[in-house]
Simulated assay, not measured.
Amino acid sequence: MQLIEGAGVWTPPSEAENDWAEHLRTPDLSVGTYCIPAGGLDDQSPHTEDEIYVVTQGRATIVTPGGSAEVEPGSVIFVPAGEVHRFIDVTEDLALLVVFGPAYGSRAANPN
């Protein structure tokens, strides 16, 4: 058992950029926090792993090719590997607990 300190807690990004902090990594999953300030832009690219977001703070809209939804604290979102997605209209500082399965980046192509 391990308590994961700071997971899902808002951290002001430095220099108005988004903030990503990984808190736990095993071969099968990773857990982190992604923060976007109010009015900020989500600049992420699709991931090679399945992903679950849990909104712990803030409000925004998530947009995917399949549609859009307003999110708020308590919202839980599943994004399959490879799906384009973006948080827009961030009206309040947004903190997201993020769970990747398998671990973030572990399915990325080996550049060698």
Rank of each mutant, 00 (worst) to 15 (best):
M1V: 11
Q2K: 14
Q2S: 11
E5P: 02
E5F: 12
G6W: 05
V9N: 10
V9A: 13
T11D: 04
P13W: 07
E15F: 06
E15P: 01
A16S: 11
E17Y: 01
E17H: 08
W20T: 04
H23C: 08
R25D: 04
R25Y: 02
T26K: 04
P27R: 00
L29D: 00
V31A: 07
Y34G: 11
C35F: 04
C35E: 07
P37H: 12
A38W: 14
A38D: 10
A38Y: 10
A38K: 15
D43C: 02
Q44K: 10
S45D: 11
H47P: 01
D50G: 01
E51C: 05
I52N: 04
I52F: 15
Y53I: 01
V54P: 03
V55T: 06
V55M: 05
T56A: 09
G58P: 15
P65W: 07
P65T: 07
G66H: 10
G67P: 05
S68E: 13
S68P: 00
E70C: 02
E70F: 00
V71W: 03
V71C: 04
V71I: 14
P73C: 13
I77Y: 12
P80M: 03
F87C: 09
V90Y: 07
D93N: 15
A95Y: 02
A95N: 07
L96D: 10
L97N: 08
F100D: 03
Y104W: 08
G105Q: 09
S106V: 11
R107Q: 14
A108N: 10
A109G: 09
A109S: 13
P111T: 13
